[in-house]
Design a protein around this nucleic acid. Sequence first.
DNA 1: CATAAAGGTTCCCACGACAGGAAGGTCAAG
DNA 2: CTTGACCTTCCTGTCGTGGGAACCTTTATG
Lengths: 129, 129
Amino acid sequence: MNIGEVAKRAGLPPKTIRYYEEIGLIKPLRDPNGYRAFRDQDLHKLAFLSRARTLGFTIEDCRTLMALYADEGRASADVKQVAQEHLGHIDDKIAQLQTMRDTLSELVHCCAGDNRPDCPILKDLSAEV
Amino acid sequence: MNIGEVAKRAGLPPKTIRYYEEIGLIKPLRDPNGYRAFRDQDLHKLAFLSRARTLGFTIEDCRTLMALYADEGRASADVKQVAQEHLGHIDDKIAQLQTMRDTLSELVHCCAGDNRPDCPILKDLSAEV
DNA sequence: CATAAAGGTTCCCACGACAGGAAGGTCAAG
DNA sequence: CTTGACCTTCCTGTCGTGGGAACCTTTATG
């Protein structure tokens, strides 16, 4: 399989796949012409990565998760811990965005949005420290 | 005022302030010794930037907002539009994170988290394409 | 059989918004 | 006079790609 083919199947751009090879997440073989030769196991790993990235795991998390996946003797507790920490980060980020959203939404609501210059949004931003 | 002083007052690291000058958001004067000499108006702008960044506006948004702030003849509609677009982006991001969170939370919940290798999280990640 | 299009390769630069650190100049206190 | 706290510029790194140049290989078509 060439890179275009796996890209389609794994749902990842070729650029990203090359990058994943560069940082050692996958190790595709090479054809005599220099083209990367992806095996099913490579495709499988890429699909794994694609899915994990969709769930927001960092590349380093992915590396850890793939190592755990490959380790038959793993403890599910280790996997769970990685996932829970990530979940914590997501929750933090959501909370932070929600705070922004609340403030911003309030300000937008208060702004007349007409052709006059008075604006509670700017007033808030320029409020005294 | 030197950079350390404004940094404290505006709640921004000196590095960030230097960066803001570099990209033209502020234009502090210079003392004969080469030190930046911040006026009240510079501090005011930095406080504005700090607040806007806290609300998640991009640097380019900040540039626009500061221009609107400086423009006495602005229409509040223009400010509102910038804010509303930003609000939209925040909502998108929250929705995306929420989707991740839901899936991940479900998976974490299903994982025993013991010393056995069976793990629904890894099972999900390695599911067939 | 020649050619053109579509695919592959490496390499380098850019993004956003800074953070870290080196190497050096300046200033206030003891 | 020295120490230490500031300040300066300059360069590099972050994270996960995306864009594009310059070049090579394969496949399809006239």
